[in-house]
Design a protein around this nucleic acid. Structure first.
Length: 498
RNA sequence: GCGGGCGUAGUUCAAUGGUAGAACGACAGCCUUCCAAGCUGUAUAUGCCGGUUCGAUCCCGGUCGCCCGCUCCA
């Protein structure tokens, strides 16, 4: 399963889906470019999400359509916004490395036992270390001292100058811990001509902030009433320590986020609603149910703002035999609006005229990675088939396929080429289609298989007489003859489901 | 960021301290009335920088990138 990832990456490059950014300069870690087919695929997924969220949102639990509007906010915002959201603090965990064990620890996750009498060395332990283990280690290393002879202090409270007297959690010798270093996940830049701390700004690490910042603007301008949603699709940037697994974890990526604002008492109802809606979304794109897994994120792992999160996980090949996150549906409470109201000093409360009350609504956030979605669609579509010339085909749902159809004259003779060109011109205004004339027909079918084109229309010598073409189905390789004037209707039905 | 492995054509792989090769793919031509056929031809590679050497793709150092394991992923 893991080896399949290599084949998928090779196919993506060979056929023009995804390239390493700055390829000719040797690449740059964590950044990717989308080629001619990749951008079509990505746009298809993006447009479908926008359609299903903003243009034609789902029917709500009470049988009436819900209300969602869109925004497109700036990537760079006032830096105070990231103080309020917790990103400046939250992404700033000081880390300590051990030179001997080569392990890295969060300074606030390690406690140190300091001898009460001030004699001898101190010992560091993981914050979850149990007493039994501590005593065992002390017995070995501390010359008969026991827990009661020490004071407990968290490592991040101890001056780095004293680190040389501390034995690291996984060593026997003192002085192996480095001084704490800050790791900030946010990319920063400077606004204006001079680069100084006064005009430092950040590239957004997630798109949702732009929604919260515009909550009041949208309420005041759009006649929306709680419950309602604001959606956004756009790029986000995180300076990941370790970009991994192709486009799964990259430093520049694209998110599709909905913030659903509702009253606190309705949260359970809407939470379940959105889990169901979002699941249906992925299923409707051809993702198999067995490829999805729902993780009710354990309390300890929840983000600081969330009281409940369900991760929709996909069976990515690199995660085999497990799953990895595709989408998160989080109850964010009213943390964000509260924080931004407090830090900005602006009054952004919602006013309910009917009930005559003011409040900050709670938020359910279905948030998915567009670029992760692209990878999931590619992985899901990748199908090995020894029985066909290409050896593999991409089983995209027709609505997601970068090319909807190829028009193939059986030979390069004018009697085949001319009707094919005519058909191509008719189709191309409505569908992304290819006209491919060169080389033998088997070779062309194989090429279309590899890029996941669901249908090939072949013009042959009988076309001139019966005004029909042969349509060849990608998955079954079966052929069927249909009239030329039915081709558009055929494609519409297959792509949009009728 | 740490440790290990690795970088040869578009892809998958060979080879070598002294001329870098194949398969598939791509392209051009011939052929061809439905699944990469056949034939002919063309283009394309030692990631980058430096060192050792008469000479480096090969040895050494750095750098960039990829893979695996840690760590990280509020």
């Amino acid at each position: 399963m893991k080896d399949q990832m290599k084949d998928i990456v090779a196919l993506c490059k060979r056929r023009g889906f995804i390239f390493a950014a700055s390829d000719i300069y040797g690449g740059i870690n964590g950044f990717w470019d989308y080629g001619p087919l990749g951008v079509e695929l990505k746009n298809n997924l993006r447009d479908r999400w926008w359609h299903d969220m903003v243009i034609a949102p789902p029917i709500g639990p009470d049988g009436t359509p819900i209300s969602i509007v869109g925004v497109d906010s700036s990537i760079i915002q006032n830096p105070n916004c990231w103080e309020a959201s917790g990103h400046v603090g939250g992404f700033n965990d000081p880390m300590v490395d051990c030179r001997e064990s080569k392990k890295r620890y969060r300074a606030d996750h390690v406690f140190v036992l300091i001898p009460k009498d001030g004699e001898g060395v101190s010992f560091a332990f993981d914050k979850d270390a149990e007493d039994e283990l501590i005593e065992k280690r002390l017995k070995k290393l501390a010359k008969g001292k026991s827990i009661d002879d020490f004071e407990r202090e968290m490592l991040d409270q101890i001056p780095a100058a004293n680190f040389n007297n501390i034995v690291g959690p996984d060593t026997k010798n003192k002085g192996t811990l480095t001084e704490p270093r800050q790791f900030n996940m946010m990319f920063h830049t400077y606004v204006g001509a001079t680069a100084s701390d006064d005009n430092k700004a950040y590239l957004r690490p997630e798109t949702c902030a732009g929604i919260f910042l515009n909550f009041k603007n949208v309420v005041d301008s759009s006649r929306v009433k709680v419950p309602f949603g604001i959606a956004q699709i756009g790029k986000a940037f995180r300076n990941e320590v370790t970009p991994r697994n192709f486009i799964f974890r990259s430093r520049e990526f694209e998110q599709m986020e909905l913030e659903w604002f509702c009253e606190e008492e309705d949260v359970p109802k809407w939470f379940d609603f959105w889990v169901e809606q979002r699941t249906n979304f992925w299923l409707s794109l051809g993702v198999d149910k067995s490829a999805l897994h729902f993780l009710d994120v354990p309390k300890d792992d929840l983000a600081h703002y969330s009281s409940r999160t369900i991760d929709v996980e996909y069976k990515f090949p690199f995660a085999a035999p497990g799953f990895d996150e595709l989408e998160g549906i989080a109850h964010r409470g009213n943390y964000d609006l509260t924080q931004h109201q407090k830090h900005s000093g602006a009054k952004i409360e919602y006013y309910d005229q009917q009930e005559n009350k003011r409040y900050l609504p709670h938020v359910i956030e279905p948030s998915t990675g567009l670029t992760r979605g692209v990878l999931a669609l590619i992985c899901e579509a990748y199908t090995v088939d020894e029985n066909r010339p290409s050896g593999v085909y991409l089983n995209f749902h027709p609505s997601m396929a970068p090319k909807k159809a190829a028009i193939l004259p059986l030979s390069a003779k004018p009697e085949h080429v001319e009707p094919a060109q005519k058909l191509y011109m008719e189709l191309r205004n409505e569908f992304v289609v290819d006209l491919d004339i060169k080389q033998n027909i088997g070779k062309r079918y194989a090429r279309q298989d590899e890029i996941g084109t669901p249908y090939c229309f072949t013009v042959d010598s009988e076309t001139a007489e019966d005004n029909c073409v042969t349509v060849r189905d990608r998955n079954t390789m079966a052929q069927e003859r249909i009239p030329l004037d039915k081709v558009k209707a055929f494609l519409r039905e297959k792509i949009n489901g009728g």
